[in-house]
Amino acid sequence: QRITLKDYAMRFGQTKTAKDLGVYQSAINKAIHAGRKIFLTINADGSVYAEEVKDGEVKPFPS
């Protein structure tokens, strides 16, 4: 399943989102408010992988 960072954070909370991605909650808040195009893939085992689309390139998040 693929979902935006904002939607994932709204569904699970910023604290869990940060923990799942290995970053601080403040980084999640800042990324959402900056309007960054970050998409999360939720794997069947429950693990989460995030990618950011920037300038036409897709890069892992966090980099």
Rank of each mutant, 00 (worst) to 15 (best):
59 K>H: 13
10 M>Q: 12
63 S>R: 12
48 V>Q: 02
49 Y>P: 00
30 K>T: 12
4 T>V: 04
22 G>N: 09
22 G>W: 04
53 V>S: 07
59 K>Q: 13
59 K>E: 09
52 E>V: 04
46 G>R: 05
14 Q>W: 14
60 P>Y: 05
63 S>G: 12
27 A>V: 15
41 T>V: 15
6 K>G: 09
35 G>M: 08
57 E>V: 14
52 E>F: 03
6 K>F: 11
21 L>F: 02
38 I>A: 00
54 K>A: 13
53 V>I: 14
29 N>V: 14
17 T>S: 04
3 I>Y: 15
4 T>P: 15
6 K>Q: 14
60 P>K: 09
9 A>E: 05
56 G>Y: 06
58 V>Y: 11
63 S>N: 15
61 F>I: 02
26 S>W: 15
57 E>Y: 14
45 D>N: 09
21 L>H: 00
36 R>I: 05
21 L>N: 01
25 Q>S: 12
6 K>Y: 12
5 L>I: 06
13 G>K: 01
50 A>R: 01
11 R>C: 08
27 A>R: 08
4 T>A: 12
48 V>N: 02
41 T>P: 00
46 G>D: 05
28 I>R: 00
21 L>T: 03
1 Q>H: 12
59 K>T: 13
46 G>C: 06
26 S>C: 12
49 Y>V: 11
26 S>Q: 11
61 F>R: 02
19 K>G: 08
36 R>F: 07
11 R>V: 09
33 H>Y: 13
37 K>V: 12
53 V>W: 14
42 I>H: 04
47 S>K: 09
18 A>T: 03
26 S>M: 09
47 S>G: 08
17 T>P: 02
57 E>K: 14
18 A>K: 02
46 G>M: 06
59 K>P: 04
23 V>L: 10
30 K>F: 09
57 E>G: 10
38 I>D: 00
61 F>W: 15
58 V>F: 09
40 L>I: 15
38 I>R: 00
2 R>T: 10
16 K>F: 02
10 M>D: 15
34 A>P: 02
29 N>K: 14
58 V>D: 04
42 I>D: 01
41 T>N: 09
62 P>L: 06
26 S>A: 11
47 S>W: 05
28 I>C: 01
10 M>N: 14
44 A>N: 11
18 A>M: 03
54 K>G: 11
51 E>C: 08
43 N>F: 11
22 G>R: 07
21 L>Q: 00
16 K>P: 02
31 A>E: 02
26 S>F: 10
33 H>F: 11
8 Y>L: 01
24 Y>P: 15
46 G>L: 07
23 V>N: 02
32 I>R: 01
59 K>S: 12
63 S>H: 11
2 R>N: 07
34 A>C: 08
32 I>V: 06
47 S>I: 08
50 A>Y: 02
21 L>S: 02
18 A>C: 04
62 P>N: 05
7 D>L: 07
24 Y>F: 09
4 T>E: 10
30 K>D: 15
57 E>T: 12
10 M>W: 08
37 K>A: 14
29 N>Q: 14
18 A>I: 02
9 A>C: 11
35 G>Q: 12
45 D>P: 03
54 K>I: 15
14 Q>D: 10
56 G>Q: 06
13 G>M: 01
46 G>T: 04
10 M>P: 01
39 F>C: 07
59 K>M: 15
42 I>L: 09
36 R>E: 04
50 A>G: 11
31 A>M: 11
10 M>T: 09
55 D>C: 09
58 V>E: 05
7 D>T: 06
37 K>C: 11
22 G>K: 09
41 T>C: 08
16 K>G: 03
50 A>H: 01
51 E>K: 05
63 S>Y: 12
14 Q>N: 12
48 V>C: 06
51 E>D: 07
34 A>H: 10
57 E>L: 13
56 G>D: 10
63 S>I: 09
26 S>Y: 11
